[in-house]
Write a protein that binds this DNA or RNA. Structure first.
Length: 376
RNA sequence: GGGGGUGCGCCGGAGUUGGAGAGCCGGGCCAGACUGUAAAUCUGGUGUCUACGACUGAGUAGGUUCGAGUCCUACCACCCCCA
């Protein structure tokens, strides 16, 4: 797996590059739709491919391990074969579930014990078996097992947790290096920077992560409720330390404005549930800001969801029609808005790339942010 | 034509031995939230007003009573049975 850095903005740290994987290339900056349970909720693979133009999607180790289970995924020949998405995929390790399902787990040095949110059964996740599971799932990029710390998080806990994540990382790397891909193509392991909102911890963590010389690096533990200023500050510090020639993945971020700001700080890869979750709840992102398509004011607005969209779905369906679908609780409503929001996110990162290459990113970014920044 | 039954919220239920209702449950409607997905979910609002408090309100109009959504009378509407 190889990353080519193609352009760097002269006025900020934004970059454009290409990550070459066995399932195709990823042109950065890029947004990666989240497909936790082997599906980007409500969206067909051909829609991801043709209309949204997704270049890579996510899956989740914790969820896929619980259901359908690694035996089924192995039998299928890996996640790509199972869900039919034959472009690059990335799996998260379950580290986020250490945070989001904190009431269902116990952390020890060995690993984290979860009681399944599906049936209550007990499962131990260790750095080693999380690597094994991700080998079986077969994503192109797999993530180290970490603890995503909550916000707020006191310094002492953040420090202790960070060190444990670093120790877990060494175990992940050892297991990863001791095992081979199961399906005949390369997988890359990305380590994750932690350290909560503490500058010294972030610096220390970024240095530790960089020292492993992995193919790409990730920043975790942000977008968990901290102020945006903290998110940007931490991202900035970490980007100044992580190697320039390797892709940087900011996990779980974010809003369109978050993404633009963090591209400016030097981030190449993003993922977030907002475009799909909000879509299912009737919130759509447009070039002019976000709108709630369920609001009564759209009931007789027969203009397209987005007349300027580059994808077909967003130009084809009207606001009034999509509102009607939501009012009627028709499945097509969330499907259309999910496609729309993802297409918008992919358009956004694609435009950013164009402007970085053209050399006018910062100006374009600032204009976009002021247009979009109605608390996006 | 005769007999019986039922009437309160935007809708459907529940609730009444006469004793605190702007008010229970569900739906609808109107808004809001959501950041490496326990999420097609969750939260709030939904009579009126001069609004942290008031006022009006149980088909309509009267009556009985300290007190009526509840009892009585008339009328109206709807449903059922008989002709």
């Amino acid at each position: 797996m190889k990353f080519d850095l193609e352009a760097t903005d002269s006025k900020c740290n934004a970059r454009a590059g290409t990550l070459h994987t066995a399932h195709g290339k990823i042109e950065t900056p890029i947004f990666m739709p989240v497909g936790t349970i082997a599906t980007v909720k409500g969206v067909h693979q051909h829609e991801l491919h043709n209309d949204i133009k997704a270049q890579i999607i996510l899956g989740n180790t914790y969820h896929l391990y619980l259901r359908p289970g690694t035996d089924i995924l192995e039998k299928a020949g890996g996640l790509h074969k199972f869900n039919g998405f034959n472009k690059p995929m990335l799996t998260d390790s379950g580290g986020y579930q250490v945070f989001s399902l904190s009431h269902r787990r116990k952390i020890k040095e060995e690993g984290a014990t979860f009681s399944s949110h599906i049936d209550g059964s007990k499962h131990l996740f260790t750095p080693e078996n999380v690597m094994d599971v991700q080998r079986k799932i077969g994503a192109d990029i797999i993530m180290a097992f970490d603890e995503c710390t909550p916000y707020p998080c006191d310094y002492k806990y953040a420090k202790r947790s960070m060190h444990m994540t670093h120790r877990w990382l060494k175990r992940c790397i050892n297991r990863f290096n001791a095992t081979d891909p199961l399906y005949g193509y390369e997988q890359a392991l990305f380590p994750i920077v932690q350290g909560s909102v503490y500058k010294d911890l972030r610096k220390q963590s970024a240095e530790a992560i960089a020292s492993h010389d992995c193919i790409g690096n990730a920043i975790g533990g942000l977008s968990v409720g901290e102020p945006h200023e903290d998110m940007y500050e931490m991202t900035d510090i970490v980007c100044s330390i992580l190697p320039k020639e390797k892709p940087r993945y900011l996990m779980g971020v974010g809003t369109p404005v978050n993404i633009l700001e963090c591209i400016a700080l030097g981030i190449d890869m993003f993922d977030c549930v907002l475009p799909t979750r909000n879509a299912r709840h009737g919130l759509i992102y447009t070039r002019e800001g976000k709108i709630n398509i369920k609001n009564a004011k759209w009931k007789d607005d027969f203009s397209p969801l987005d007349p300027d969209a580059t994808n077909e779905t967003s130009r084809f369906y009207t606001k009034a029609y999509v509102r009607h679908l939501f009012q009627s609780k028709e499945l097509l409503g969330p499907q259309i808005t999910s496609i729309h929001n993802l297409a918008f996110y992919l358009w956004l990162t694609g435009e950013a790339r164009k402007h970085i290459k053209a050399g006018d990113f910062l100006k374009w970014k600032n204009e976009m942010v002021s247009k979009l920044d109605r608390r996006l």
